[in-house]
Simulated assay, not measured.
Amino acid sequence: MAVTIKDIAKRANVATSTVSRVIQDSPKISEATKARVRKEMKALGYEPNFSAQSLANKMTQSIGIIMPDADVAIFQNPFFLESIRGISELANEKNFTMAIVTARTDEELLDRVKMMTRANRVDGFIILYSKSEDPVVDYLHNEKIPYTVIGKPQQYVNETTHVDNDNFQAGKDVTQYLIELGHKYIAYVGADVSRTVHKERVRGYREALHDAVLYADDSYILDSSFTNADLDSLFTLPTRPTAIIVGDDMYALPLQTMLSQMGFSLPEDCSLVSFNNLRIAEMLNPPLTSVDIDIFTLGYQAAKSLIEKILDPKEMTKHILVPHRIVERASSQRKTMENTTA
């Protein structure tokens, strides 16, 4: 006769509901109780039937991962790959599967999310971006579908579980780092202010310059579609920058190439500091000083929070901040008289 959870419950002296929660690794069950129940499961050779359990609980044990768009560049960006790796790590621990959701327009994305929820294909979603007036967020919130956001949400902030860095502080910290190296004219290149993360970092950048009573003009800020002509305009200002903050490591490679073509040596003529600390940062020449935002943990914590909400709809809303740190490499250096201009 096959072993059932009733057999496990009897041997472990717990309720059958407790055994079910242990199988789901519910945070509501103590580690001591989990250890006792798992010991009896192992002793009896019990293998949980996750498919049957999902049907009984009307759960799919699958989560949807909503990407910003379907452009090939998104899937080539290590930020998204690393955050999905963190999500996958936790999903595997909890015996959940994942489904990627992409589209080229907001309307198409909303239609796909609606289709997945109405067909009961997933139990909830992780949104890998944050922007204002998002119809997908409106839909999930109004339909009371579990979701978490990586980034600071722009809608229903107090009601939305999200995992983020303190991007305002990160922008401020990296600017202060360059100021401490003696730089007074600091540009910001690759500022995609349509995204909350970049908007907050630029706000921190401006605050740090303001606090230090340094120059903070819009001519020193270029968006993510910057060109050679834009850089040429930046470096022909009456006082050119001696340091640049780059919005993302992925922008640093073309930026380094452009600066080299313009005849600038790095970091002698211009220091560079970027964000995300992707592997490419170590491979650039010179290696790139970058802010490590612990992307893996962002994904892991987002998945953990979502699955906790799925297993217990009464789970409280969480706002989780993942620490950041500056990883110093050869692309930044103290400003000397030789690289002082104007």
Rank of each mutant, 00 (worst) to 15 (best):
M41E: 08
Y139L: 09
L255Q: 09
L278C: 09
T242V: 04
T289H: 11
Y177N: 01
Y188I: 04
P238C: 05
T340Q: 15
V202W: 11
M1N: 12
A99C: 01
K309G: 05
D223Y: 03
Y220W: 09
G171H: 04
N92H: 09
F79Y: 15
G151R: 11
I29A: 10
A281V: 07
I186H: 10
S290F: 08
D173M: 04
A91V: 08
Y215V: 10
F125P: 05
S271G: 01
E268G: 05
C270M: 06
K152V: 12
D7A: 07
I65G: 04
S30D: 06
D312M: 12
G151Y: 06
T297G: 00
I87Q: 06
P323D: 10
T105P: 00
L181F: 08
Y129I: 00
R279W: 03
K314G: 13
T239Y: 06
E108I: 00
P241G: 01
R325F: 02
V291M: 06
G204C: 10
R206L: 13
G299S: 04
D138K: 14
I320P: 02
L109S: 07
R201N: 10
F296T: 03
S83F: 06
A342P: 04
P146L: 11
I74A: 08
Y220V: 00
D106Y: 02
A252T: 14
H141Y: 15
D123K: 07
A99M: 13
I221Q: 14
D249N: 09
M98S: 02
L288A: 02
F168T: 02
V246W: 09
L306D: 03
L311I: 06
A52S: 10
D294S: 04
F275D: 01
T117D: 13
I221E: 13
